[in-house]
Design a protein around this nucleic acid. Structure first.
Lengths: 334, 334
DNA sequence: CTGAAAGCGCTTACAG
DNA sequence: CTGAAAGCGCTTACAG
């Protein structure tokens, strides 16, 4: 068992693998004059000890991992992170999951180059990567994680349950009784919380939730479009739809139009996120605002505390959602 | 005159400053046990030689410098850069001008940490920074530079003149004779090119450009709003306005509405950029599309070639603009 | 293929 | 304050 407090040196790896320092150096630098068996043994020791070259000073860099950068939602997270980090004198390296899967050794590259910490958005790191990061003393903060909040790392999220609640309360308050939901992907923790909030608001108003009115999309405009059509074809269609994000609401808006329904006169629509486009739509979209920039800033600040040696445990920070009432909601007809 | 080919070592700096290596080390590490005069002398030598610590392997990182990240335009540049860099196995560190001015020694931090190259968007680097980067062998590519294209660094831009031309030709083709322009900031090279394109289209159609119809904004929605009002108050108002970017077009749309004018029935509007919101506006905005992601990708590829030791000279690459006709343009009334 | 020896760039501990 | 000496982590050139 190596002394896990100190970062392992090349010499330590050499001792562990039963070779000389120059040999380890060769393996690290990809030279060809090393026997295959030796290379394997050394490689194994390097991995097991989470070796990173030399004692480096803080890089002044944090890594932001996002699944996909091609959305307004992601853009806002990037902005919030870059701005908050800049204020602390930290640079932000932005990586997408695509980039990570492209290079098999993504984490090797990051560790070699050096990083002060990692903000992982939505997609949790693979367990093996978490272990290596922990081994190298690199702190990680989760932003809007997919899974249950308390899984061993500090995380920043949003009050999803409350968001589902206030969106649905707003619709019920306008007089709607048949309210549908097109949630995000069903396995996501955030989706479940939002749908539960929706159910709670319905129940509180004495309305029995109807499972036919609960559907799950994948956050794309086309999935909103598709599910809205299915919902509106029902024998007893909803008079209002609460959508899992603004993209899905835009798809639903399109579907309503295609069926000759006016929004909000014939059908009310509520989104989630409040991306910039939401306010430019016609009708402008009523939506649940997520404070994405603040969430990103909070994640950066947590990370900075961890980098500075502070402890935050596995704390979960939740920022609150807020209903932004615009033009896409109104009382039901008749 | 130092040997500018090799990166200066700490020992070389020591010799130059007439002190020992440990003393230089102390200055570098901000120790206090160094006489003020000595510190100054050493600091001066460090700066003059563009000292960076040790011989480091490529960082696998490039730096993206943007003035302000709070715009759809910037978001798209960031996306394009991150995606293109990821494909080459490079990480992207995003910095804003705000961050740069916040830390006086921004470039010191970057050089110490190591960067393979820099993409500078719009805002050219200060001359002194260019010199230091060149001294350290860090290549720089300009993206959509403010000034004249050929100023000693390779750059990627867009055919601005042609963009102004096709936007105006479209309006003239619809029958408009009084066409106004609300350009971007007047000193920008791109603004001048676009306005010249506008003039050329007018002249080609036998219309004498009227200086009262040429105004300059600052790319914000509010400046578009303000200038559109001024234009529409003219004794002989325009029947169409070509705007320097989509934000300004959105401001002009608002101004037209406030005056009870319908778009496009009473006034036609053309934007520039084709940000995502443009297609969601009502009426959807006719605009000149800039291939921002391709521009960013091109800049990254140029940079990668330079990093790899290739030569590209001071080449200027221009990608072409394209008119996207939507709903905000129509023939003039009567 | 492997590693003892020399070397590089830098830092640390300490004598003056 | 300053720097000679020792040391650290790693790499290179080369003998076997």
């Amino acid at each position: 068992m190596p002394n896990s407090a100190a970062r392992p040196t090349l010499a330590a790896i050499a001792a562990e693998a039963g070779v000389s320092a120059p040999t380890v150096s060769k393996v690290l630098n990809g030279r060809f004059d090393v026997a295959e068996g030796t290379r394997l043994r050394v490689h194994d020791a390097l991995v097991r000890h989470g070796y990173t070259p030399r004692q480096t000073e803080p890089s002044g860099l944090i890594d932001l991992l996002v699944q996909d950068i091609r959305s307004s939602w992601a853009d806002t997270i990037v902005r919030g992170t870059v701005d908050a980090a800049a204020e602390l004198g930290l640079g932000v390296v932005v990586s997408t999951s695509r980039a990570r899967s492209a290079s098999e050794n993504w984490l090797d590259v990051v560790l070699r180059r050096g990083t002060d910490g990692v903000v992982a958005v939505v997609d949790p790191l693979r367990a093996v990567d978490r272990v290596r990061l922990a081994g190298c003393g690199v702190p990680v903060v989760l932003l809007d994680p997919l899974g249950e909040p308390d899984d061993g790392l500090p995380s920043v999220g949003v009050t999803n349950w409350q968001g589902g609640l206030i969106a649905t309360e707003h619709l019920v308050g306008l007089g709607h009784r048949r309210v549908a939901v097109i949630g995000g992907p069903e396995p996501f923790w955030s989706t479940r919380a939002r749908v539960e909030g929706y159910r709670a608001a319905l129940s509180a108003a004495g309305i029995t939730p109807d499972d036919a009115l609960v559907r799950y999309g994948n956050f794309s405009e086309s999935s909103g479009h598709e599910h809205a059509h299915a919902l509106l074809e029902l024998p007893q269609p909803p008079t209002a739809i609460f959508c899992g994000n603004d993209e899905q609401a835009m798809g639903a808006l399109k579907a309503a139009r295609e069926r000759g329904l006016r929004v909000p006169a014939d059908i009310s629509l509520v989104g989630f996120d409040d991306v910039p486009v939401a306010s430019w739509l016609s009708p402008a979209l009523t939506t649940v605002r997520q404070p994405l920039e603040s969430m990103a800033a909070e994640a950066v600040h947590l990370l900075a505390r961890l980098v500075g040696g502070g402890a935050v445990g596995t704390r979960r920070t939740e920022l609150s959602t807020e209903l932004v009432v615009r033009e896409s909601t109104a009382p039901p007809r008749r």
